[in-house]
Amino acid sequence: MLEIDCPFCGKRPEAEFWCIGEGTASIPSLDASADDLQKYLYFRTNSGGEISERWVHRHGCGEWLTVRRNTKTNAILSVTFMNDDANTRGQREDR
């Protein structure tokens, strides 16, 4: 099992997080075609080596994270806040 070093909570087991997908995929606009939406939702590059992924700490602080990971070795290279705004870190509406 992976251990992810959340910048807000510290090292936590992978089970506390949810991987959303590739961090390089751009979200289509509201008026995007069905083909563009299908490509965004279902097609990924699945490249071997270093990739950037979006994760959310769902059983922790609730922060969205960008995780750089090597898919060949499963080593986590870096973890940063997805929206790196120091004024909003750790501040959720439901707290």
Rank of each mutant, 00 (worst) to 15 (best):
R58F: 15
E22Y: 04
I27P: 02
S52H: 06
Q38R: 12
R54Q: 11
A15D: 13
N74E: 14
M82K: 11
T71N: 09
F17W: 08
Y40E: 06
Q38Y: 07
H59P: 04
T45V: 10
D35F: 14
W18Y: 14
C6H: 02
I20E: 10
A15K: 14
F17Y: 11
W64A: 15
S47N: 13
I20S: 06
P28H: 06
N74M: 12
E14Q: 13
A32M: 05
R69S: 08
N74A: 10
L37A: 13
L2T: 04
Q38H: 11
H59E: 15
T71W: 06
L41H: 10
T45A: 10
G10R: 00
R95D: 12
D35E: 12
S33E: 09
W18P: 04
K72F: 06
R44N: 11
E93G: 08
G10E: 00
Y42W: 11
E3V: 11
K39W: 05
H57E: 02
H59K: 15
L77Y: 04
Q91S: 07
G49I: 01
S52E: 10
K72Y: 07
G21P: 03
L30I: 13
G90S: 03
A75L: 09
L77N: 06
I20P: 00
Q91R: 10
I4M: 00
A75G: 05
A86P: 07
L41T: 06
L37F: 13
N70Q: 04
V79C: 01
S52L: 14
P28L: 02
G48A: 14
W55S: 02
C9A: 02
K39E: 13
S47M: 08
G90V: 03
E22H: 06
F8G: 03
W18K: 14
D84K: 08
G48Q: 14
I4S: 00
K11R: 09
Q38V: 08
V79E: 00
S47I: 05
D94V: 12
S47Y: 05
W64P: 11
A25H: 12
D85Y: 12
K72P: 02
S78C: 03
V56A: 06
N83W: 14
F81R: 04
E50F: 09
I51H: 01
F43K: 10
S78R: 04
I20N: 06
G23W: 07
T80Q: 11
R12V: 03
G49N: 00
R54G: 02
L41N: 09
E22L: 02
K39P: 02
H59Q: 15
W55C: 01
